[in-house]
Every structure is written in C-alpha cells, then in structure tokens.
Simulated scan of single mutants.
Amino acid sequence: MLEQQLVNALSLGCVYALFALGFTLVFGILGVINLSHGAVFMVGAYAALAAVAKFNLPLWAALIAAVVISGFAGLLIDVLVLGPLRKRNAPHLIPMIATIGVAILINNGMQGYVGAENMRFPFGTVSSSLVTIAGVHMTSLELGIIFLSFALMAVLMTTIKKTQLGRALRAIAESPKAAYLLGINVEGLFLMTSFAAAALGGMAGVLIGLYSNAVFPLMGQPMLHKGIAVIILGGMGDIRGAMLGGLFLGFAEVLSVAYIGSNMRDAVAFGLLFLILLVRPQGLFGKVLERKA
C-alpha cells in the first residue's frame, strides 16, 4: 500500500533529518565538519537504553538523559579537541581529521565496554498501539518521531531567524572576529552550539534505536555517511536543507525497498542524490554558504 510506505518513509526521513540538524548546526556556526557526530549519536542510544533497562526510567526520562549525556559528550569534544584547534587557527581539515580519531576512540571504547552484539530496548518500552488516519496505520513511535522532528526544526528556525541569540549566531557564522569585536561571547556560543548539536544527535540515536530495535557500538557509522549526504544535498549549514535532505533520503530508501528490492536501497538513494547534485552542486539551499571576507 503506497500510503503506508509513505508514512514509513516520512518517519525514517525525520530521523535522518534530526541527525542532520545537529550536523549542519555545527558546520553552519563553527565551520567544522564534525565526524565524531555519529559516535555521539551512538552514545545517546546507549544512554537511553541504560536508563530504561538498568534504572527502569520511563522513555521520556530516558530521552532527556540521552539528550543531556550526548550534549555533554559534544561539549567535552569541543573543550578538549575543537576549542584548542580554534585557538591555534588550525586549517579546516585538521578538526575533521581530529574528530575522526575521537569517533574511533569512542566507538572502540564502547565496543570494549559493552561488546559488539546488538542490544534492544525492553519489550513494552514504546506502546505498540496503532493510530489509523485515512486508512493508514501509524505507531505511537512514528507519530512521535514526525512531531518531534518538525517541532525541533521549527524551534531552530525561529531561534536562528527571530531572536537575539539567533542574530548573534549568524554574526559568528559570518565572522567570529567581527562578532567578538561587537561584544558577542563567541567562545560561549561555540560551546552552546556543540552541546545543542550533540544533543540533537543523541536524540536521533535513541529514535533510530527504537525504530530499528537495535543498538550497537558502530551504529553511528552508516548514519554519519547518510548525514553527510543529507547536508550536502540540502546545502551545507542550512536547517531547511537538512530537513528536506533527510526526508528525501528516507523516501528514496523506503520506496526503493518496497518497489525495487532491499539490495538496491543505498544504490538507488545515493544514485538519485548524485543526479540532483549534478544539476545543483551547491545543494537545495546552497546560497547560505556564501560568505563575505
């Protein structure tokens, strides 16, 4: 049934978009491609799993715990790795290479601590009840993913475009030195951005762990690849582009599985992405990348 496949694609695309929102936020403000974002995504999933399985917390409390823990993980990465590199005016490739090392460290550390096997959230963590809308069945998890993703995108867009904080962040994105001369707390906003982006990644980790019913140490690697594809498609640094790019990838994957075959899922999705970028190399909203010297 096409309508059912579209609902599945929408929920999956929203998870991709949620992951990409954090990814693109770091690039847009800090100017860094943080390749440890997938590892933070995994940390969020394990934090929620531990909160539910070991401490018997309800899912909403586990989600808050995951957001806080992954946010502090992102903050720690900024303080220990990205911040010192900023102070030394390191070339753009250096932070990217450094975050690859951080990701390997986190992934291997988690694998050594919990093992490499798949883990699952306890049965009944999410209600299995179905909601039927116009003949289409949706689970409470799918509804929650869709609502949460669009709500967070709206909050981020409103914050960036309409608030004093957003104006300060846009000023930093244009020129950190000029923002500093204007009295903006540049380093503090860098830290806040790292926390918020990692929190979004951790939340996406929880949702994909629930959606796929699998949590494992290397779960962030394929998501990282898709996140990079999403922000390139949407236009690097653009929140709208991250959301639309995530939805595009989700729809391409689900519909290719339904009508072509699961073996061709990634080939079809990334093939379509490649064709779009041939037509529009800067991405859907690539104009936001234009910066004045």
Rank of each mutant, 00 (worst) to 15 (best):
L289E: 15
M138W: 12
R167P: 05
L148F: 14
G261V: 11
P91R: 01
I94D: 10
I33N: 00
F23M: 00
D78G: 01
I208E: 02
I184M: 02
I260H: 09
P217Q: 03
I231T: 05
S194P: 05
M110C: 13
R167V: 04
E117L: 07
S128V: 15
N185I: 07
V279P: 03
I160G: 06
L273A: 03
L191R: 15
I97R: 04
M138F: 09
L105P: 08
F248Y: 14
R280D: 11
D266A: 08
L277D: 09
M157W: 14
A65L: 12
E142S: 15
I94F: 10
L21V: 03
G74M: 10
L277K: 07
L273T: 06
V67I: 14
N118I: 14
L85F: 00
G227S: 02
R88D: 04
K162R: 15
A73R: 11
L35E: 00
R86K: 02
V81T: 00
G188D: 12
L21H: 06
A116P: 07
S194L: 11
P91V: 00
N34K: 08
G38M: 05
F274L: 13
P58L: 06
L233C: 11
L278V: 14
L80A: 10
T125C: 09
G205Y: 01
A50I: 13
S11D: 03
L233G: 11
M157F: 13
F121I: 10
N108V: 03
I94G: 07
V215Q: 02
L249P: 14
L255T: 13
N118T: 14
